[in-house]
Write a protein that binds this DNA or RNA. Structure first.
Lengths: 332, 332
DNA sequence: CTGTTAGCGCGTTCAC
DNA sequence: GTGAACGCGCTAACAG
């Protein structure tokens, strides 16, 4: 791999001139430009980005922290981020944190140590206080997850309204005993639950605490949730699940109990994951504008890097209720 | 963010000494070490990795190229890679290529321009010739995908035997008309098909070319595959699908035709994706040792970086046939 | 045990 | 329009 020095020597010019040709800034006569470009092509020269980045003290790289790439929910979000980044001459790197605080802090060192220009969190194991300190000094944006004490730009949907709409849909179908399978300690879930409660109260029904159960964000969480709900004397006739993955576990468990979805129990999921339309029955769910969430998040990040973005700032994008087989009783 | 200079000045020593404390190499008296460490902690100093990497001309970063993070198949593979990398003081970056040749070449510039020490491909849009040239000069390893002309280390399973076993399983269950939904131009699919054919021939049956259809690596591909197979006068009674996602599409389409799986048509998938046990019916499939594939791939990469690894070298790991509901007729 | 110095590869002022 | 020289922040070779 040749260096800029060798190009310069071979072209019979100084490194400064090569640099000018490379970056197309500063004046170069068309003759020498042609000559230099010729050598660049001939040697197949590519500038060493380590040197360039050190000199410019920017990398034009944005790191996206994912709990785990296996969650297909994030693929379109990342696509939105990537497209926006590329349009602006930035690149996106993805790292798995596996909810491991040590791993997370290694990746944050990339930010502190100038290997990337900014970090987008889709989750974090850090305590809020520490997170806020980080956000104070470095470009950091939160995507889709949050809690109310966080001081950093946040892009999300209005989870309270989404929870309200999901529950209202079940109420309109005539359900009066509506369960909810949620997870603990997540800001978005908390808001969805508040929407769930508001819908029930506004419909003149009563919130039954036993109907709200907390499990993990997974297929198994859904199975356990149903098990718990169906140990009650009066099990619900409809269940709002905090994610499609939970909904899938719930449906699978109901089927194994010999119950039919939606005829015996209606199920609503959340996220409109790729499984939702594929499952049998296909799953009624809340679709988040994932691409736009990613796009908006990256836009804010790039603004933040430029310095024209304050740090306390929440953007809520529109969601959609998508009605599918899991809540619409067939005629049989 | 302080520099090493400022730390040195504040501690009253030279930058060399700070560097020695930082990297814990070279002799430093315990007194000055303590003093320097004190200043480092006080200033919360972290070394600028751009400077360090430029100096060392290594980054201890490995780039993993994924077609798309949405494919959950790769999550465990990546986990295997990450664990192995971390054990050796390396970090893993993930990038989506979206099968976009231009994007891919941008990421390859990271390699050529010293931003990462090696690249692992799980897919590539490059032509083989160009790929081989790249592999000749830079540390490159191929994971799970290949064609026979490629000259780079490859880690995979024995797809021919896997295809053979999947098909033999169906034959043992009494099926004689066995279809296959495959995809074009992928080395692994080609080998699976060869195994499929060998199983059929060894059982004394005849390969029917109409039973092999080619579609995309997706849910929709599975639906279209079934549609095509069931336009035949004598549709198959069992179908071997090249991936679980295709199998899911196939099952969904069969159900919408009023056919039962497995009682009317048996289905085998491939990969043991997370959907496979969750789907209804759960899907018989070939499980690849994903974690070990990732681990082995990274081990070879690290050897390759050290220079003790030749470039023409294929590792095949063990797979497993997992039998589930989609091939086992229930008694009804 | 410690400091001085050179240079990794590049971009950029400032002369000319 | 072009080149010489400096420095981004760090590590390593050498001298003391």
């Amino acid at each position: 791999m040749p260096t800029i020095q060798e190009v310069a020597k071979k072209a019979g010019v100084s490194v400064a001139t090569v640099s000018r040709v490379l970056n197309d800034n500063g004046p170069v006569s068309s003759n020498t430009r042609k000559k230099v470009q010729g050598v660049i092509d001939e040697l197949n020269y590519q500038p060493n980005l380590l040197g360039r980045n050190l000199r410019r003290s920017e990398t034009r790289m944005i790191l996206v922290l994912l709990q785990n790439i296996s969650n297909p929910f994030y693929s379109k979000i990342v696509k939105g981020m990537e497209d926006t980044a590329h349009e602006n001459g930035y690149n996106v790197l993805i790292c798995n944190t596996n909810t491991d605080i040590d791993l997370e802090s290694i990746y944050l060192d990339f930010l502190k140590n100038k290997l990337v220009d900014g970090v987008i969190f889709t989750c974090t194991a850090m305590v809020t206080e520490e997170f806020n300190k980080l956000a104070k000094y470095y470009p950091v944006v939160l995507c889709n997850e949050y809690n109310k004490d966080i001081k950093a730009p946040i892009v999300t949907i209005d989870n309270e309204i989404a929870g309200y709409e999901a529950t209202s849909h079940l109420i309109k179908l005539g359900h009066k005993k509506i369960g909810m399978i949620s997870v603990n300690n997540v800001g978005s879930s908390y808001d969805r639950m508040k929407g769930y409660m508001r819908a029930i109260e506004e419909a003149g029904l009563e919130v039954n605490e036993d109907y709200i159960v907390y499990h993990t964000f997974s297929y198994k969480g859904g199975m356990r949730g149903i098990k718990q709900l169906f140990e009650l004397d009066e099990p619900p006739t409809a269940v709002f699940c905090i994610s499609d993955l939970i909904a899938v576990g719930a449906i699978k468990e109901l089927k194994s109990k010999g119950l039919r979805v939606p005829n015996d129990v209606a199920i609503v999921g959340f996220d409109n994951n790729s499984i939702a339309p594929m499952y049998d029955p296909s799953i009624t769910t809340i679709a988040q504008p994932r691409y736009d969430i990613g796009k908006k998040t990256m836009e804010i990040m790039l603004q933040r890097i430029k310095g024209n973005e304050n740090n306390n700032h929440i953007v809520k994008l529109e969601h959609d209720l998508i009605i599918r087989e899991s809540t619409l009783p067939s005629v049989d």
